[in-house]
C-alpha cells in the first residue's frame, strides 16, 4: 500500500499526541514510530525566532523528501509539520514522525527526513534579541555534512 505523507506548514502549535494517533489509528501493521521534535533554543539572549518560507516550493520540497524516504524505507506513514511566524524560546518548531513495521526503518527515516529538510526545504530563521538586535541565521556546514551522509554514490 502506498503511503501519502502528511505535510503541513502552519503558524499554530501542533499536538504530538494527535499527530501520533493519526499515524496509528485503525491499523495493526505499525510496529514502531519515531519522532523528532525541534524546539526554539534561547541562545545569547534570544527573545524570538521568526520563520519565513517560500509558499508552494516548501510543500513541494518536503513532499519530494518524504517521497524519497518512502522509497528508501518501508514506511506505513509519515508526517512533517513545520511552523512559521514568530516563535518564543521553548516553542516547538518542527515535528517529523515516521511509522513502520520495524524500528530501524522508523528511526533511520526520521533522521533522514530532518537532515534533508534542514538543507533542502526553503525556510529561513531570523533571530530577535531582547536588546532589539536581529540577525538572519546562517546555514551551518555541520547541517550539510549531516545531510550528505544520506547521499548515495
Amino acid at each position: 500500500m502506498s503511503v501519502t505523507p502528511t505535510i503541513r506548514i502552519q503558524e499554530a502549535p501542533f499536538d504530538l499526541a494527535v499527530e501520533t494517533a493519526a499515524l496509528t489509528a485503525g491499523r495493526e501493521d505499525v510496529g514502531g514510530l519515531a519522532s523528532f521534535l525541534g524546539l526554539c533554543r534561547a541562545d545569547d539572549g534570544l527573545s524570538a525566532l521568526v520563520l519565513e518560507h517560500y509558499p508552494g516550493m516548501t510543500e513541494r520540497a518536503i513532499a519530494a523528501i518524504a517521497g524519497e524516504a518512502c522509497l528508501r524505507w518501508p514506511l506505513t506513514g509519515c508526517t512533517v509539520v513545520h511552523r512559521v511566524g514568530r516563535l518564543p524560546p521553548g516553542a516547538p518548531i518542527v515535528l517529523v514522525l515516521t511509522a513502520s513495521s520495524h524500528r530501524a526503518a522508523a528511526l533511520e527515516s526520521c533522521a533522514f527526513l530532518i537532515d534533508w529538510l534542514k538543507t533542502r526545504a526553503p525556510f529561513w530563521k531570523r533571530e530577535e534579541f531582547a536588546d532589539g538586535r536581529e540577525r538572519w541565521v546562517a546555514a551551518k556546514a555541520e547541517d550539510d555534512e549531516a545531510a550528505a551522509r544520506w547521499d548515495r554514490a
Binding site: 518560507h53 518548531i93 534542514k118 526545504a121 526553503p122 546555514a139
Partner: peptide
C-alpha cells in the same frame, strides 16, 4: 532568490 536555507 534567497540565502542558503535554515529551517528545521
Amino acid at each position: 532568490f534567497f540565502p542558503p536555507v535554515t529551517g528545521g
